[in-house]
Design a protein around this nucleic acid. Structure first.
Lengths: 144, 144
DNA sequence: CTCATAGTTAGACCGAGTCAAGTGTGGGGG
DNA sequence: CCCCCACACTTGACTCGGTCTAACTATGAG
């Protein structure tokens, strides 16, 4: 758990219980909404790592801080609140189930990095490509 | 303008002034927010095609109807309200400028259809791939 | 010890979109 | 010709996710 502390310090952030709790929560379950992070953190409140409730503002501050230093990434699929995950640095993409909303990681496999190839169009300078595959997850596809 | 009527009938929708006005507005300017559509429609109110103001709910109804029959497509970039465009049927993607928010169409050029290749992962059955390139548009890139 | 600053809180606020329920309205049947 | 019903549309309250503001508290460098 103290590696979380190291991680935070490394990025120039103070290591606070809330920040550690958020990182810990995201490590356990990827692709969670801000609310889910909040309740995960709240649940931590009863464990040994005891954490006081985190206010809404506090939560967003923490998430934004972590995002800014590159520890956390967020995606905002159409029709869903923002989802947060630990930044793995592997530039993977996401597959989202149209019927149950489950989010799955998809390794960035198309060739090397299809990711930044495309738009030489009109002088546009891309720095990131975000790909979302919409469809049905295994469970929902079979139960059709 | 009556081709809009035909278009609507073809898809099983009554041709109403509001629906025509929305289609017309989208034909003129792609990637507009619901609000922008609303004001475009309102502006039409003073022209020859006179249209009475369209309520918020009415607007969303029209947009949803058009989307359902495949005349309109919408994208919801992170941190922005939904943007609407006419469905061109060409499955193009979008490049969004991080600094000015401008949205540009990007032809779906990577190979044939990178679009549905990827996730054989875990039984996921994709039906659409949505790609967003984030970066700087020509104007913002040069003015750095 | 002390003070600036980072972190936190409570609560008002906002924009985008949805819900529910009512009002027109226009195009068939009786 | 009139009634009636489906569909278009309006109004206003409401929800949800998130932001802003203004305080308060804890921390840690000097």
């Amino acid at each position: 758990m103290s590696d979380l502390t190291a991680l935070l310090r490394e990025r120039g952030l103070r290591s606070t219980p809330h920040r550690r709790a958020v990182l810990y929560a995201l490590a356990e379950r990827p692709h969670v909404t801000a609310n889910e992070v909040a309740s995960a953190v709240a649940r931590t409140a009863s464990g040994p790592g005891a954490v006081t409730e985190l206010s809404r503002q506090g939560l967003y501050n923490v998430l934004e801080d972590l995002r800014r230093v590159g520890l956390v990434r967020s995606i905002e699929p159409a029709g869903s609140p923002a989802l947060f995950e630990l930044q793995a640095g592997d530039n993977h993409h996401h597959a989202i189930c149209r019927s149950c909303g489950a989010v799955q990681d998809v390794p960035c496999s198309i060739g090397a990095a299809p990711c930044l190839d495309a738009p030489s169009v009109g002088g546009f300078v891309p720095d990131e490509a975000e790909i979302v595959f919409w469809g049905r997850c295994a469970a929902c596809a079979t139960s059709l």
